[in-house]
């Protein structure tokens, strides 16, 4: 997709309907998974579905699949910096009580 024409890309309607269906199925699936006991895997599966749903919205409804690298960079960059916030904060909380002064 060349930079010049990406803004004029028109996504076929069938794509929108397919994504819509996938999102609805994902929602139902999340609910179903939530009710069965998979231990720690419950969270992993539910968040994986949520990330997948969000990715579908970003790529197709928000047209990022057809956008310039710069937009990809903006999306990726924000997630990267959010991860810095989360990881370095968790880094503290996970290690609370490992050692103490004195």
């Amino acid at each position: 997709m060349s930079d010049n024409h990406n803004q004029h890309h028109i996504v076929p309607l069938s794509t929108y309907y397919t994504i819509f269906l996938a999102l609805m199925v994902g929602t139902a699936l999340t609910w179903w998974v939530a009710t069965i006991d998979l231990g720690a895997m419950n969270n992993v599966i539910m968040l994986t579905i949520a990330v997948t749903k969000a990715t579908l919205v970003v790529l197709f409804f928000m047209h990022v699949k057809y956008s310039s690298k710069l937009i990809w960079l903006a999306v990726g960059g924000s997630i990267f910096f959010l991860l810095i916030l989360i990881v370095l904060t968790l880094n503290d909380y996970m290690a609370r009580g490992w050692y103490t002064f004195g």
Partner: peptide
């Protein structure tokens, strides 16, 4: 009051 490990990393 953050963990010492975390302080070390920072």
């Amino acid at each position: 009051g953050q963990s010492i490990y975390s302080a070390l990393v920072f």
